[in-house]
Amino acid sequence: MATVGTGRGARTRRGTAGALPSALTAALLTVLLAAGCTGPGGSADDGRGSTAPSVREPRPSGADGPSVLAVKIGNTPAARPHTGVDAADVVYVEQVEGGLSRLMAVYATRLPESVGPVRSARESDLELLRQFHRPVLAFSGAQSRLLPLIDRAPLEGVTPASSSGAYLRGTDRSPPHDLYLRPGRLMDDPPGRAALTTGFRFGPPPAGGEPEDALTVRYPAARFTFTWSDADGRWPVSMDGVPATTTEGGRLAPATVVVQYVTVRPSDYRDFLGNTTPYTETVGSGRATVLRDGRAYEANWSRPGAGDGTSFTTGDGERMHFARGQVWVVYANAA
């Protein structure tokens, strides 16, 4: 279950990102990952299966239509600070085992030099990504029973085993938090804004809304706070009470934050420790809170089918426009 706190009773002090010990270029060495060499059972992540190694050429620009790059990213304290998340067009936050969280960063207009740390996929990721046209999904591995579903899904899965040259291991962290993707090894160029077939609309804000300083979303074992910054015109992120920064020292700060209330139920899968994996249902309809321009707007969301984008409307049925810039979508349990 996720709970949300808003308003002045939920305010948090605006943090300032401190300088990190080293920049990305010093933190990461270009050490190629040998396929399937970490984790219990020889998997590339946390005891989950993988596929046989092969060589993969970068996707040419425009091949099979515009396709976003989606990267599954770890989000425990040991996985922070993140690399390349600030370049994503959309960042999805979802609950995983033990009440923790993971991120799905989606890239269309920019490809950073590196992204990570890359972690394993979940069943609900397949439904989430159906709103994009044949996305490229970069992930470290998956439970063996889930791999056939990933193979049949309308996406292109890329793991260290299938494309070892696209990944590297950092030297400043321990596995499984040391795996990074090099997007330039998968795509020649970013696919462009047309690949964001999510249903989002960008433009001026609607009338109304309530002034908002901060909003906090709580999972059983994770917490996200978005605090409005007048100076930056964005919502700097804190995770578990700590300012969320990048490996280069910048602050993660989206222009729009969407708290989307959904059904989060147990799936038929468990992790290698035996914990049940939550399934986040992203098809259907419900309510949402949209943060933009220092205000909070109550909205409704709708996604009739898995192949449809997710639309947001105001209480009077008008399309909800987002502020231009990065969007964070935080899935909170409606129950």
Rank of each mutant, 00 (worst) to 15 (best):
D172C: 03
L181E: 06
Y180T: 03
Y180Q: 01
L186M: 08
G184D: 10
T197S: 15
T171L: 09
H177L: 03
P191Y: 09
A194Y: 12
R193T: 14
P176W: 05
R182S: 05
T197R: 14
A166D: 02
D189M: 09
G192T: 07
Y167G: 00
A195H: 12
A194R: 15
G165V: 07
M187H: 11
T197G: 09
L168W: 04
D178W: 00
S163R: 02
P183Q: 10
Y180D: 00
L181I: 08
R185S: 13
S162E: 09
A161W: 10
R182G: 02
S163H: 13
M187C: 08
M187Y: 12
R185F: 08
R169H: 07
P183Y: 06
A195M: 14
R182C: 04
S162G: 04
L179Y: 05
G184S: 15
P190H: 06
L181H: 05
P175F: 09
L179P: 02
S164R: 05
G192Y: 08
P175R: 06
R169F: 08
A166Q: 04
L181W: 05
R173K: 14
P183K: 04
R169I: 01
A195R: 07
Y167L: 02
D188C: 11
L196Q: 12
D188G: 13
A166N: 02
Y167E: 00
P176L: 09
G165E: 13
S174K: 10
G192H: 12
